[in-house]
């Protein structure tokens, strides 16, 4: 189906969509938006936690035990700090 991949969608194609498919597409894009947000947050967190957790010189392509648990802690503590900020912010608003 490589030919179909090349097809561009124009206004007249959009008009062919029935209500069921429109609803399905809306759901698809809602999910995709969330997946994108999670992926971009993962990129950011990987950059932050890489700096903190993979400090020694690189001798192989695998994560060792210490690095793995450091990465897990790094993500969890980042989220903790995030929640502290949010909680304090809501206090400041009151």
């Amino acid at each position: 189906m490589s030919a179909a991949d090349q097809l561009t969608i124009d206004q007249s194609d959009i008009e062919k969509l029935n209500d069921k498919d429109k609803a399905e597409l809306r759901q698809f894009f809602t999910n995709e938006e969330q997946r994108s947000r999670i992926q971009s947050q993962t990129h950011e967190l990987t950059g932050i936690c890489w700096k903190k957790c993979v400090a020694s010189s690189i001798r192989n392509g695998e994560l060792d035990k210490g690095e793995r648990s450091c990465l897990q802690n790094c993500v969890d503590r980042f989220m903790d700090a995030n929640l502290v900020t949010l909680k304090h912010l809501s206090k400041m608003r009151q």
Binding site: T46, V54, I58, Q72
Partner: peptide
């Protein structure tokens, strides 16, 4: 590169 990808997967799973 391999290590960074492993780190990405670990961070993603934890997140």
């Amino acid at each position: 590169m391999e290590k960074y990808m492993a780190a990405w997967n670990e961070v993603n799973a934890t997140y």
